[in-house]
Amino acid sequence: MAVSLKGKVAIPEDRFEMRLSGSGGQGMILASVIFAEAIGKTDKRNVVQTQSYGPEARGGASKSDVVISENEIYYPKAIKLDLLLTMTQESLDKYYADLKEGGTLIVDTSLVTEFPTDKYFGLPFTELAKKEAGHVMVANVIALAAIAELTGSVTREALTDAVLSRAPKGTEEKNKKAIEIGFAEAAKLKAKKG
């Protein structure tokens, strides 16, 4: 017997799926761990975080998925993304196809120059980290704060808590600054897009 399930089965709707992607060393996996922790501090939703990276410490593609649901989360990785953050051209090219129609695309415009769509939120996370926050290292935290502002899925307080509990000693101020920049820049962008 053979049947066609095309058109009969639908991807599950009870999951919010996001992917943070970039190059090894940009802190995408850490950022997703922080975000998952912040969800836990915000409310009682279920959260699963997974990661995928190469054997090298820096460079190579790196991605991390966060799945959020009111229900039991069966499959731990993303099936079809509601939100995609790409910090490099390579990750945008690789993962754009996994984004749902109408999903949110957030791009680091300091490193990405070619876009498959004009529907995206672009912020120069890496530039902002270097010039405004004082260190390139916090680009991931600026991006997290921007995601928090754009999606409303975690509170600012929970995100700050989660970031500071993971931040190495001596980097607290830079991280707080990064959170401020992320929320402010994303709010501006949201206002502009209406």
Binding site: V33, I39, N46, V47, Q49, T50, Q51, P76, K77
Partner: peptide, 9 residues
């Protein structure tokens, strides 16, 4: 690897 390296609340 997926289980070892995934996190869940």
């Amino acid at each position: 690897e997926v289980l070892g390296h995934s996190r869940q609340i």
